[in-house]
Amino acid sequence: MDNFLDPVFLLEIFEHLIKYVPITLGLAVGTMIMSCLLALMVTILRYKKVPILGKIGDIYVLLGRALPSMILIYLAFFGIPVLLMAVSGTNKSAMLLSGIPPIAFAALGLTLHTGAYLAEIFRGALQSVNVGQTEAELSIGMTWNQAFFRIILPQAAVFATPMMANQFLNLLKGTSIAFMISVIELFGAANVLASNNNAYLEVYIVTACLYWSTSICFEKLASVLEYNLSYFKRCTSK
């Protein structure tokens, strides 16, 4: 490379790498959706102090936040086949599993990681809504579930949105470790491209720009979402 940061070369890198943005995005968004469902379930079990399951939820939240996400991905990738083999006692299930792409294991590992953080975010958000409103619902004969989903959750969501957005950006960057189990997403593709062309600086500059611009989009999206969810906090009437 004689011309340092040659624009044409940068553009070529860009054109190659942008194809991997959807993979990174898909992994991040898919993981986020699964994490939210997992976290919501765990949060309700803990909030209602369901016997045993609530405690399991507590332990999960502790572990999920204590372990590096990379270890969770490795555990999912290497552990699940072994576990299934041990349970079924045959190789059949392992064969079945080999049909599953590594990206699914990456999503699982990242979900376990992100779900634990989200569960903590949700717990805090629920505490921000005063219990009097639940009592008001119960006092007129609503069920606990009605009170939770109609009154508490919509208000907690406003509180949680900025922190969830934060967690999502973390996750977006966190998808890069899926490379460790051979998932070729944005960072993985960048690594390959960089070493093939021996152009580390250029490739990583372009990669950084791609992560950055994606993040900006989501940050904007989150603030629009927060604005729309908080309609009842604004001091103008409908």
């Binding site: 009097g132 409103q133 009592e135 008001a136 006092s139 007129i140 004969g141 069920t143 009842f232």
Partner: peptide, 22 residues
């Protein structure tokens, strides 16, 4: 319990209106 609650109503010291509803 539901039957009693459906036949009674309460007005609270702190109002406890549902904040996300008009």
């Amino acid at each position: 319990i539901l039957e009693v609650r459906r036949n009674t109503a309460m007005v609270f010291q702190n109002y406890n209106l549902f904040a996300n509803m008009t």
